Computed example of a mutant assay.
Amino acid sequence: MSSKNYHVDRTPARSDEPIWWSLFGAGGTWFAMLTPVTVLVLGILVPLGIIDSDALSFERVHRFATSIIGALFIIATLALPMWHAMHRVHHGMHDLKFHTGAAGKVACYAIAGGVTLLAIVFIIML
């Protein structure tokens, strides 16, 4: 057993990284779990006629999109993968030795925030 003297920083600096990592994780999970099902249903099963296209009539889709569950689903489908992607872009630039500093971080997360805001405005305008 060694007698190394370890120092524990009892007052670590605050970080905003947990916020971005949680949005990154939520976006990656959403994209991996729900986006393929959405694409399967809307992009394959309905066009092939396996699911009746009347199930996606304008009235039914509008009623879904204007319900709280539907609105949250649409907002999450648009916003969460964007947070995931922009977090990857931000850290990917760093990994590629393209250091943009705070400006790059702000730009990446501003884009994701903008898409989120547009998704919310889109739903409100329905």
Rank of each mutant, 00 (worst) to 15 (best):
M1C: 13
M1T: 15
S3R: 13
K4L: 03
H7P: 07
V8P: 05
D9M: 12
D9V: 10
T11V: 15
A13C: 04
A13P: 02
S15R: 01
E17Y: 10
P18Y: 03
P18D: 03
W20M: 10
F24Y: 13
F24A: 11
F24G: 06
A26F: 05
A26E: 03
G27R: 04
A32W: 07
M33Q: 03
M33V: 12
T35P: 00
T35V: 03
T35N: 01
V37W: 08
T38D: 14
V41C: 12
L42M: 04
G43W: 00
L45M: 06
I51H: 01
I51S: 00
D52S: 05
R60H: 09
V61T: 08
H62M: 11
R63L: 11
A65E: 09
S67M: 05
S67E: 06
G70W: 04
G70Q: 04
A71V: 07
F73R: 10
I74G: 12
I74T: 12
A76T: 07
T77Y: 08
A79E: 14
A79F: 07
L80H: 11
M82P: 03
M82K: 09
A85Q: 15
G92F: 00
L96P: 09
F98G: 06
H99V: 07
H99P: 05
K105V: 08
C108G: 04
C108K: 05
Y109P: 06
Y109L: 15
A110N: 01
G113D: 06
G113E: 05
G114N: 04
V115T: 07
T116R: 13
L118Y: 07
A119F: 06
I123P: 05
L126Y: 15
